[in-house]
């Protein structure tokens, strides 16, 4: 079997994420982007009970299209209104603030990287984590995509794409990859590949991703559609063998290949892999 292995995954959707007690105090001043990051990371990491890894051998990879956009606008509000800028607000408007919080809260000290892209930032995180694990720089990686958007973005999208009536929901996904198959069900990430090309700027808001198949199936029209589909595939049901997910969009083509060993009987009966 070849890794890396997906040992946990989770998704969180909603404006105000549910936070466990131990995270409420340290995150009380965190913005929605930080809270959603922490909520998804927590939900994934609590599934990892088998093998501890030293924090120095764990890394964090966070991809996002729009980052903490509303916090950025809140800073702009202060500037335009000629009011003092809150230092906390400013520090939260910096794109890597969420990764910094997660690194601190979950003891991930082997490095943290935040990627921004209007195409497939989750896949960028996955690919870079895969490289780090393959080179032996890390043993474990937490990979996230987090999107919270902002009213300005929703309004702009409606103006640019009149048929876009539904607002994109705030959402985060988190995966944990490990170099070893430590779960009863061995599920590995065989391939992450994507090629991107020049595309009109509007494609960042007018996402049309088609899932390869016969017939092709359109994905939901938001930036979290592919990460959610993959998370669903990786985390919710037992299946066996190889699954190739290929998506085409105006800005490129992406392919992810997962492989799963047969589900152990104890998991097959429930049809679920996570505790």
């Amino acid at each position: 079997m070849t890794g890396p292995f997906i040992i946990a995954c989770a998704s969180v959707t909603g404006t105000v994420p549910e936070l466990p007690e131990y995270l409420r105090k340290p995150l009380r001043r965190g913005d929605q982007f930080i809270q959603l990051t922490a909520a998804a990371a927590h939900q994934a990491l609590v599934q990892v009970v088998a093998v501890e890894r030293p924090g120095e051998r764990c890394g964090l990879f966070l991809g996002t299209c729009f980052g903490p956009m509303q916090s950025n606008f809140n800073v702009l509000d202060a500037l335009i209104d000629q009011e003092p800028v809150s230092p906390t607000l400013f520090s939260h408007s910096v794109f890597n603030a969420a990764a910094g919080y997660a690194s601190r809260l979950f003891g991930i000290f082997g490095g943290a990287w935040t990627f921004t892209s209007f195409t497939w930032p989750f896949l960028q995180g996955l690919a870079n984590a895969d490289f780090m694990l393959a080179t032996g720089r890390l043993d474990r990686a937490l990979i996230l995509q987090v999107e919270t958007y902002a009213p300005l973005l929703h309004d702009t999208r409606r103006r640019m794409i009149p048929q876009a009536v539904e607002e994109w929901p705030p959402c985060a996904v988190a995966w944990v990859l490990d170099r070893e198959a430590i779960n009863p069900r061995a599920l590995s990430l065989r391939e992450v590949s994507f090629s991107e090309g020049a595309a009109p700027p509007e494609t960042a808001l007018d996402r049309e991703e088609l899932l390869a198949g016969d017939p092709e199936a359109p994905l939901d029209l938001h930036p979290m559609a592919l990460p959610l589909l993959l998370t669903d595939l990786a985390g919710k049901t037992c299946w066996e063998g190889e699954k190739q997910i290929t998506v085409t969009a105006r800005f490129g083509k992406a392919s992810v290949c997962l492989w799963s060993a047969p589900c152990p009987p104890s998991l097959s009966s429930s049809g679920r892999t996570s505790p």
Partner: peptide, 29 residues
């Protein structure tokens, strides 16, 4: 807004150069 959406630095430079490899922006402050 169009300029912002078209200005992801990695993608922009790849387009300008006519490159075909991966393009990424790292935002680690």
């Amino acid at each position: 807004v169009r300029n912002y959406l078209g200005s992801n630095l990695g993608a922009l430079i790849r387009t300008v150069l006519g490159a075909t490899g991966p393009a990424t922006v790292v935002t680690n402050a």
